[in-house]
């Protein structure tokens, strides 16, 4: 991790509506925001920040389709090829009886697949430590962060004046 040390200048805001206005302002001033951290999902932030829609649900559909096929094809193979048995005088390939398990496995595959994908793309895992900027971000502070590794003094001044103009209650630096 030592190779990716980042110097960060960040401002903390007390209210999400002030935060959204500040993000809009930063976009207008062409300041490159590293990330925005909030204690809860702030609605209306994504379009202002210019975040593309998550594609997680598309992945979920694909996982679900894999589950459907796995369940249905496996049961069909078992009862028509591998070990055909007559149950209650019904045909070997008794499709209606396969529906409940096919449905359950569709849901199971989609759910597990999406949850695993979610943690993977977010870079999260059990026990993983990702350095945070301030402990109050998960409590009541809303944070806009700028990366300042090679920033000139004039750029830093510009960022600081942005923070004071947009209503940040605190401005700090941290190396993460």
């Amino acid at each position: 991790m030592s190779a990716t040390h980042k110097e960060v200048l960040f401002g903390l805001y007390d209210d999400e509506e002030v935060l959204i206005k500040a993000v809009k302002q930063a976009k207008e001033d062409h300041l490159e925001i590293m990330d925005v951290y909030t204690p809860f999902p702030v609605h209306g932030l994504d379009p202002v920040l210019g975040l593309a829609e998550s594609r997680l649900h598309i992945a979920g559909f694909i996982y679900g389709a894999i589950g459907t096929l796995t369940a249905f094809l496996f049961m069909s193979w078992v009862f028509t090829r591998d070990w055909p048995i007559i149950f209650g005088g019904k045909p070997y390939w008794s499709v209606p009886a396969f529906i409940p398990i096919t449905f359950e496995l569709t849901v199971l595959f989609a759910s597990i697949g999406m949850v695993v994908s979610f943690y993977t793309v977010c870079g999260m895992a059990p026990g993983k430590t990702i350095p945070t900027l301030d402990d109050r971000i998960t409590d009541d502070k809303f944070c806009i962060a700028f990366e300042t590794n090679d920033a000139s003094e004039s750029h830093l001044d510009k960022l600081r004046s942005f923070f004071s103009a947009s209503g940040a209650s605190e401005v700090n630096t941290k190396v993460i």
Binding site: D35, V36, Y37, T38, P39, F40, P41, V42, L45, D46, L49, L51, S54, L56, H57, G60, G64, V107, A110, S111, M114, V115, F118, Y119, V121, C122, G123, M124, A125, P126, G127, K128, T129, I130, T132, I137, T138, C143
Partner: peptide, 27 residues
């Protein structure tokens, strides 16, 4: 820290988290 999987509260993570919650609810 172990239990929270390294959650930071990043806007992108919240967006994915909401998308995941909604699809899991739908399922």
């Amino acid at each position: 820290n172990f239990l929270s999987f390294g959650w930071t509260g990043s806007a992108k993570h919240w967006q994915r988290w909401e998308s995941l919650s909604l699809v899991l609810a739908g399922l």
